[in-house]
């Protein structure tokens, strides 16, 4: 921990009229407005579920409670890692903050992978599309909007992680901006390729009769994506190697905290969706 970490008050800012850091106040105002946005989407879904049209799809047949429970657990754990990232940077522990950000990103990616798989399964196997039923229309609109929020959160996490490598002012490192851009491209490329490879293997394991055949099928079809993932992983490791002092420290904790507020909000929206959209259908 650096010397002045203990003297920073991360909850109050005496320089603003409210005593709250402006970035945090802005984020809370945005989240309050986003509550109304999701409130409208959730109530639309509930209204149509309370008055289902005759001959519509049965959610009990369509939904998969095991997969949704797993993705709910993953999102809760990502919230824990995000909270730990904020605490780490507030204490000036940059290394711990970076690992926590990476883990949060990884969990967010797993959640997105589960959602992509779920949507694909519903469309191809359960024949529920956006336009062939009211259930599909309200369900995809609501959960898809939430998924977009998660995707934006993962992107924000990736950019914050890359930003933590920005050299300190006065550093002799040349071309740091292009370095940062390439680092961000490599990290986002790695995330997308990991998503593609994982979904490809899941599909292969489901279509082939044995695990060995599934793995072989997955390796054949995802060889290029797997090579790309390994290449971008190497690039990320190379960009993340120590290059001297960095600018990012506990004074930037408010940026991580604001991002954390957004991420936790995505989690609390899912807490409501999980109960209102999935669990209530099984009663």
């Amino acid at each position: 921990m650096s010397s002045h970490a203990a003297t920073l008050d991360h909850h109050h800012d005496p320089t603003t009229s409210t005593g709250i850091p402006n970035k945090k106040l802005l984020m809370w105002a945005f989240l309050a407005s986003d509550c109304m946005f999701f409130g409208a989407l959730i109530s639309t879904h509930l209204i149509y579920r309370l008055h289902p049209p005759a001959g519509g799809l049965d959610p009990k047949v369509v939904f998969s409670p095991e997969l949704t429970s797993f993705s709910t657990f993953i999102l809760l754990m990502s919230s824990l890692m995000m909270a730990l990232a904020v605490t780490a940077i507030q204490k000036g522990n940059l290394r711990s903050c970076r690992w926590s950000l990476l883990t949060t990103m990884f969990f967010g990616l797993i959640f997105l992978g589960c959602q992509v798989y779920e949507f694909s399964h519903f469309v191809h196997d359960r024949k529920m599309t956006l336009s062939n039923s009211l259930l599909g229309t309200t369900f995809y609109t609501l959960t898809g909007t939430h998924g977009c929020h998660v995707a934006i959160g993962v992107l924000w996490l990736a950019l914050m992680y890359v930003r933590s490598f920005k050299p300190a002012p006065g550093s002799t490192l040349r071309g740091w901006f292009s370095h940062q851009v390439l680092h961000a491209v490599a990290l986002l490329g790695l995330l997308l390729l990991l998503l593609k490879v994982t979904l490809g293997f899941v599909h292969a394991l489901q279509t082939e009769p044995t695990v060995a055949a599934g793995l072989g099928h997955g390796l054949r079809h995802e060889a290029l994506a797997l090579a790309g993932a390994l290449l971008t992983l190497g690039a990320c490791w190379w960009f993340a190697r120590p290059r001297g002092p960095v600018e990012f420290d506990e004074r930037h904790a408010i940026d991580v905290e604001s991002m954390g507020l957004y991420w936790h909000f995505v989690d609390i929206v899912w807490i409501v969706i999980f109960t209102a959209v999935y669990l209530l259908e099984y009663l």
């Binding site: 203990a6 920073l8 008050d9 800012d13 005496p14 320089t15 850091p21 402006n22």
Partner: peptide
């Protein structure tokens, strides 16, 4: 925009705890 500024000093041990 404002950044968190120095507040009255807390003991480092208390902050750690």
């Amino acid at each position: 925009m404002s950044a968190p500024t120095a507040a009255p000093a807390h003991p480092a041990a208390a902050d750690h705890a």
